[in-house]
Amino acid sequence: MTETQPGTDGHQAPQAGDWRLFTGDGTARSPSFPAAPPWRSFSGDVEDDPHPRPYLIGADEADVVNAALLLRRPLLVTGHPGTGKSSLAYAIAHELSLGRVLRWPVNSRSTLQDALYRYDAIGRLREANLREDRTDGDDQEPTPETPGIGSYVRLGPLGTALVPSERPRVLLVDELDKGDVDLPNDLLTVFEEGEFEVPELARLPEREGTVHVLTADPQAEVPVTRGRVRCSQFPVVVITSNGEREFPPAFLRRCVRLDLPEPDETRLRNIVRAHLGDSALEGVDDLLRAFLDRRALGELATDQLLNAVFLRKGGVQLPPDGLLSAVLHRLSGTG
């Protein structure tokens, strides 16, 4: 790798072949960005799988996944950050050809209704008022037909997963332990019954019994009859938790639980090979040792090792007290 030369203010000006894009010297440049890591490459097509990377899992863990699939029960996945909890949902969808994953990221404000559907009553009222103002004007012009109520109802990720289909959809309920303490119990009825009701549609007159509504899939609509959505195939539900709190026993009883272990050195090498190729393993023994040593002292995620290997493969030097410490920083505590 080409050395950098100091600038007039002490900064290192990038030279040909240098990996640095930013120097902090205030000089405007237009450098060419190198290829991104495979796990940080994004397509403009929303239908594409955002996580097409390979996924490695042990035989015992795969058997637990299969048990959840056969029992049609939610799979509750626990483990340290970076063990691949969320990625498992995408791996299942990819391997079983189940289409786009429906993701529900849970936070402290999340509610069951948000996951099932949303009704934009304010938007519908505003549209009605605008149309009334147009017809009250002096120059009355023909206005487009008033949109039906279905244009203001959008199914959420859970609601979309319960739409009848020939093959089940994959629903990722990400970090359920961050939600309200009552949220797991709220989910029980939906998981047991496999259906829910949209009251705003159920109250419509008989002549409007079937309404087409929007879904969590881009630009997709589905018919809903008498306001009731009932699945024909129970979705593949993957629920992740970082163990911030325990769930109610009634909820746990209805889930199949999978605890993902931290990968050992052999599996780490296989993960690096799967993501970056065989050549990526050349000359990275020191990074593996540093990762394992630091992980023994505190939580580290596997993708942190992949980041370090990717930088090394791109010609970046990783001195232990500098850049490597920034890349392999502990996820708990300040060390």
Rank of each mutant, 00 (worst) to 15 (best):
R167Y: 01
T225G: 05
V170R: 02
L21N: 12
G314L: 12
L76F: 00
G84F: 01
L98F: 10
S279R: 14
D138F: 13
T23C: 07
V106S: 06
G194D: 09
V64L: 04
L69R: 04
Q15N: 09
I271C: 03
S41D: 04
E166S: 14
F310W: 15
L258K: 03
E3K: 13
P205H: 10
R289Y: 00
D25R: 10
E145Y: 08
I122M: 14
H51L: 13
E192K: 01
A16I: 14
P248I: 05
D139W: 08
P248K: 06
G283T: 12
E95T: 01
H80V: 12
V170S: 02
S241H: 01
D63K: 10
R167G: 03
L268Y: 05
L56A: 09
A290K: 10
L323M: 13
F196T: 00
A68L: 02
F42Y: 15
E265N: 03
F310M: 04
P263M: 11
I239A: 02
R295D: 04
L292T: 12
A274R: 06
P142S: 12
G44R: 13
L306F: 07
V222L: 09
P105S: 13
R154D: 04
V237L: 11
A280C: 09
F196K: 02
G179A: 15
P263H: 06
G333F: 08
L176C: 07
E262G: 08
H80N: 10
R203W: 03
A91Q: 00
L21S: 13
G58V: 01
A67I: 07
